[in-house]
């Protein structure tokens, strides 16, 4: 594959169709700038700033853009909130739609046939494989990203974190918690 891709890139550069320096900038952006730390900052702000949370739940695209996160594969954002009564899970059964500006590029498991096929028919089984047992009385809501709306899960703020500021809270928030296959763990005293 590496040789095939190199040959194709050489041809496209020779034809003047792509600028290899532009490819480098894009790769650097997705390797180093655009990833789940972005989403974690949004979550931590929502946990610590009720006004921000209200804006985020009403118009997630604009509220997320306050951080400078916007654009490709996050043009139209919706945030869904986990509560003691509701657990949200995000999938794209038809391809691999994922909120890039806040979570970066999707992990392999999110793009896998196993996850795409099962998240809608057996969400509780999938969550159990991630080590998350959801009680029967908690409703599981699965969001199948069939259009250009991209979903971010606002996880529950864990107990024992009252003294933490937004930066310390953001460090606790994992990519998986913002897809809905994990919770944010509490602090062990």
């Amino acid at each position: 594959m590496a040789l095939r891709v190199k040959a194709l890139e050489s041809l496209l550069v020779e034809k003047g169709l792509v600028d290899p320096a532009a490819l480098d900038v894009m790769i650097d952006a997705y390797e180093n700038r655009i990833g789940p730390r972005n989403g974690a900052r949004v979550v931590a702000r929502a946990w610590t700033d009720p006004d921000y949370k209200a804006r985020l739940m009403k118009d997630a695209t604009s509220a997320i853009a306050e951080f400078g996160y916007s654009g490709a594969q996050g043009e139209h954002m919706v945030v869904v909130e986990n509560t003691p009564a509701v657990h949200n899970l995000v999938v794209c059964t038809l391809c691999s739609c994922y909120p890039w500006p806040v979570l970066g590029l999707p992990p392999v498991w999110y793009k896998s046939s196993a996850y795409r096929s099962r998240a809608v028919i057996d969400p509780r089984g999938v969550l159990a494989e991630f080590g998350l047992a959801v009680p029967d009385e908690v409703a599981v809501r699965v969001w199948d990203s069939t259009a250009e709306i991209r979903y971010l899960v606002l996880p529950e703020r864990p107990a024992g974190t009252d003294g933490l500021d937004a930066e310390a809270l953001a460090a606790l928030v994992s990519r998986d918690a913002m897809v809905g296959v994990a919770k944010v763990p509490g602090l062990t005293p």
């Binding site: 059964t93 038809l94 992990p107 392999v108 498991w109 896998s112 046939s113 196993a114 996850y115 795409r116 096929s117 099962r118 998240a119 809608v120 028919i121 999938v126 494989e129 991630f130 199948d144 998986d176 296959v181």
Partner: peptide, 14 residues
Amino acid sequence: DMGGMHGFGPVEPE
């Protein structure tokens, strides 16, 4: 169009 299909095995996070 995979939603609801069986047979792809467990989800394997890395």
